[in-house]
Amino acid sequence: MIGIVGIVVVFAMVFGGYLAAGGKMAIILKSMPYELTMIGGAAVGAFVISNDLSGIKHTLRDVGKVFKGPKWKPADYRDLLCLLFELVRLARQNPVALEEHVEAPADSAIFARYPRILKDGEAVDLICDTLRSASMNYDDPHQVEEVLEKRIEANQAHALHGSHALQTMADGLPALGIVAAVLGVIKTMGSIDQPPEILGRLIGGALVGTFLGVFLAYGIVGPFAAKVRDATVEDAHFYQLIREVLVANLHSHPPNICIEVGRQNTPSHIRPSFGDLEEALKEVKQKEAA
């Protein structure tokens, strides 16, 4: 929602200020379809050239983050801590019983209680691979932490592709606007024998290309890239929380302490409160007892 508000503000301030200063929209509206065809078409073509099909789909999906924000909400962090608490406690009480959950998470009663997390293949794989490795005596906390850190960094680098692609497009739009303006000047030169009022309209139309290139770059596509980057970086905290809890588990801390380590290492604006988490863990224990 806030993304839509921002777009409305950008358009209202730019074009509202232009109209308030006595500008006329007629010349912009007349030239805009042709200029947008040249600038937008060239930008899309360059985007397709510089990305494979997977990268194009990735970027288009990421545009939704401008309006929806990060994928993981505060409630998801609380649910993740509850899920990890159940798995860590089970690993301590009955390592053999844990195997069925990490080997087939889709059929696990524990994972089934957290459907949003279960749908995220990377989060599930990160949890299951680490717990499986610990059961195979690959349980040096420092080595595991290093492996998890590299894995999370690699995943985040891939996740940031959409932001980089949008930023590359934003960087090229002003130059494409100049290309459209130059073509407009060439068109104007072909009508140099026309009266001043006609030449003025032609020159004004040519300058619309420069305006649109800069406006789209710094008013729309550039902010889109920044929003996608920020949302992607924030989502990475979800996977870092998994690392913190599971590494704390390898240090043989009690399950409650492992969960508190994860909670404390979550950024404050998405961190579950101690009281809320305690209530959620009590509900987990009651369900297990039932």
Rank of each mutant, 00 (worst) to 15 (best):
V228F: 08
K227E: 09
K68H: 14
H161W: 08
I39P: 00
V44S: 05
D171M: 01
I259E: 03
I152T: 02
G41E: 00
T266Y: 00
Y218W: 13
A21H: 11
G200H: 05
I178C: 01
M38D: 02
F238Y: 10
P255A: 06
K65W: 10
K187G: 08
L183G: 02
V48R: 09
G162K: 04
P272E: 01
E103A: 15
T59I: 08
A206C: 11
A104R: 13
A123F: 02
I152P: 03
V5P: 08
F224T: 01
I257L: 12
A180G: 01
V247T: 14
V208C: 09
S135D: 14
V14C: 08
I49W: 13
L176W: 00
F211Y: 07
N155E: 15
V284I: 15
A46N: 11
E234Y: 07
D235W: 07
D129T: 12
P95K: 01
V185H: 01
K57R: 12
I127A: 03
G162V: 02
F211L: 12
Y114W: 06
A106W: 13
M13R: 05
P95A: 01
L36G: 01
K57M: 14
Q167G: 11
I257S: 06
L277Y: 07
M136F: 14
A226Y: 14
I49V: 14
D171C: 06
K282W: 13
G190Q: 04
V5T: 13
D140E: 14
G45I: 14
G190L: 00
G190D: 04
L281H: 02
K57Q: 15
K68D: 15
S268T: 08
A217Y: 09
Y34T: 11
T232Y: 01
L212W: 07
P141Y: 00
I270Q: 00
A217I: 04
K57F: 14
L29Q: 12
V185D: 02
L87H: 02
L202D: 06
D171S: 07
F211R: 07
D276L: 09
